[in-house]
Nucleic acid binder design. Sequence first.
DNA 1: GGCATTTATAGACTGCCGTATGATAATTCA
DNA 2: TGAATTATCATACGGCAGTCTATAAATGCC
Lengths: 191, 191
Amino acid sequence: MSQEKSSVGRPKNEAASTALKEVALNLVMQKGYDAVSITEIVNGAGVSRQTLYNRWATKAELVLDAFFELANRRVEMPDLKSQTSRQTLLSDFLKQIFLHLEKDGDSLGSFVSAAQSDHDFREKFYTRFVAPRADIVRKLLKDAQSRGELAPDKNIELWTAFIHGAFWYRLINGQPIPQDLANEIAEEVFR
Amino acid sequence: MSQEKSSVGRPKNEAASTALKEVALNLVMQKGYDAVSITEIVNGAGVSRQTLYNRWATKAELVLDAFFELANRRVEMPDLKSQTSRQTLLSDFLKQIFLHLEKDGDSLGSFVSAAQSDHDFREKFYTRFVAPRADIVRKLLKDAQSRGELAPDKNIELWTAFIHGAFWYRLINGQPIPQDLANEIAEEVFR
DNA sequence: GGCATTTATAGACTGCCGTATGATAATTCA
DNA sequence: TGAATTATCATACGGCAGTCTATAAATGCC
């Protein structure tokens, strides 16, 4: 959003932003992304149409903001200080992600959908959702390498893509993402 | 499309179908999927609006049909009779796919997009595009196993997902898919 | 207080989507 | 030939998107 808050002029009504996000998220969670119209959202928030467009360019961006601010979808970084095997850490981390995916599959699907046609949105989604999770895996793999749990010549970048690709591939194709997949992946990484 | 051709009544005008597909594909290739409206397509084909809806439920399905029938996007099955190493066969096969992806990335992106909101479409896309390619890789890996080029306890299903996930993951996130990725993947599979 | 600046609102406008309707055309069957 | 069936066409409709305009409201600055 990069507010830039200009000191002069009528200030933005933060209550309107909040109301829009709350209404949007509630409607989407309840009826599904595509079934919710922008008209519906602004009416529900008791706010003028233009006010929404003053803040977000698309429904996808609004819902993305609402999703991250109001739903609790932060991932927990695995504790690299612990002595737990890195294979277990990875497996647990993936299980955590898969739980979210199961719950938010439809919303995430709509984000992926929006990202294909709106490259600006794609970048935001990538930065806020995809990349942070990929970073964690990358760090975890490097740590495992430095501890000697992983072959030192493993192609970390490629394996990060393997791991994330495996479940994104299932997600976009509408296949279930069972918890056990986390174990299978972790086993194969550390074999 | 499962025609079911009923013998009675006025027959469908095949020329209209062809015209619609040609116009749709041309417009999409030229302007991009989202920039093309249904109204534009039917006008361009000189056909009534209803005629399009008699044949396809959505723009995505029409374009999908056009894409597969008019563009030449068949993949070539690697020759499992040849004595070439399976690693090379895999690498070459992937390079072939990556070339298509580079050319059709935007169209494919719009298919992925449509698939997220339309589950019927998702299944068609999966059946006609994704699954055939995954099958080939699966067969290739099994063949490599039977020839002793691949560890017999490798999890074929998982690796098929790894391989496809790796480039789908890049595709949906708008990252380039360099030819060299094919080599990297094949190396890691057969290491 | 007057002015520039920014936001908010209501309403209108164009274009498109998906559906519906009524009329007409092309074909098979009895 | 006439009835039944299906396809096509022109047209219209309600709903939504995204843009635009005119007007009012809230703030900082001089």
